[in-house]
């Protein structure tokens, strides 16, 4: 970790070698733990997972643990629940945030500042400090223990609304003005002109909405109690609590939970990074 300080040595080749060595060390530290979990999940019952010295490559790789974890908990149902929650979260956030963001950025009306303040205030309230009240609300709506109850509180994030507002506000006025003179009304201008121009930000919202819903733990843990409704994260916690002694099973379960996201990340990498950079630059 003392690395980057050394990076600027005068000679040409030396620093590059040092740089790659450091990169490899950090790589081992960040990816290594994932590989160890993957390796554990592939080791059969005949192989000692506590062995000295530890071996990263399984002697006889097997998928048996993946089948076994499906027998002790309904892990594929959990995965399906997670998919449902994540997809719903993407759709509602994209639609709701785009609509509201467009109105805040492009339509002039009385109370606009007020509406902005409402979203900013909502963004400032930490979920952790209102989750008990949210849980009570869900009970009143009889939505506790349903996937709808998992999705609803975060289905249009205030932060996403403000992100979309910034994206719409950055578009040049002229194009929309032309459409307006041609007689296009607000909805048409939104759908035909503004929305196609903010696809990038919309993709960022979608990617983070998916990841947020897929990875969320605390809220589903509170609102769900019936095992058949569990999402993967809550299901994994249950697996860990009940079958903690079988590390191979826990490892297989966590690989199932993390693999889809790694694939998503590998395919849509630029949106992950763009979102954070834009957020940081524009604030």
């Amino acid at each position: 970790m003392t690395g980057p300080g050394r990076r600027g040595r005068r000679r040409r080749k030396g620093p590059l070698v040092v740089r790659y060595l450091l990169l490899l060390v950090v790589l081992a530290l960040t990816v290594g733990p994932f590989l160890w979990q993957l390796s554990t999940s592939l080791k059969g019952p005949g192989e000692d997972i506590y062995r000295y010295p530890p071996s990263l490559v399984p002697e006889h790789p097997t998928l048996a643990n993946y089948a076994a974890v499906g027998r002790v908990i309904p892990v594929w149902d959990f995965a399906l629940n997670s998919v449902k929650v994540a997809v719903a979260n993407v759709l509602t956030n994209c639609a709701g945030a785009a609509l509201a963001g467009y109105a805040l950025a492009r339509l002039r009306f009385r109370g606009r500042r007020c509406a902005v303040v409402v979203f900013v205030m909502a963004m400032l309230v930490p979920v952790e400090s209102i989750m008990i009240a949210q849980f009570m609300t869900m009970r009143q709506l009889q939505l506790n223990d349903t996937l709808l109850g998992v999705v609803l509180p975060g289905c249009i994030g205030a932060m996403n609304v403000l992100l979309m507002r910034n994206a719409f506000a950055a578009l040049p006025y002229e194009v929309e003005e032309a459409a307006y003179v041609d007689g296009a009304h607000a909805w048409q201008r939104f759908v035909r002109i503004a929305l196609p121009s903010v696809k990038g930000t919309l993709a960022v919202v979608a990617v983070f909405a998916f990841m947020g819903a897929w990875d969320d733990f605390l809220w589903p843990l509170i609102v769900l109690s019936d095992q058949s409704k569990f999402t993967l994260t809550v299901g994994l916690n249950y697996l860990h609590g009940t079958f903690a002694n079988d590390q191979r099973l826990v490892a297989a379960g966590s690989v199932i939970a993390v693999l889809p996201l790694i694939v998503l990340f590998a395919c849509l990498q630029r949106y992950f990074f763009r979102g954070v950079e834009e957020g940081a630059v524009k604030g």
Binding site: L99, S129, F190
Partner: peptide, 22 residues
């Protein structure tokens, strides 16, 4: 009314599930 129609879903969710619970 149209700005408020655009804003309605967002305001409802944020009001009902963030500000009211607070």
């Amino acid at each position: 009314t149209s700005p408020w129609l655009f804003l309605a879903p967002g305001l409802l969710v944020v009001g009902g599930f963030s500000l009211y619970p607070f």
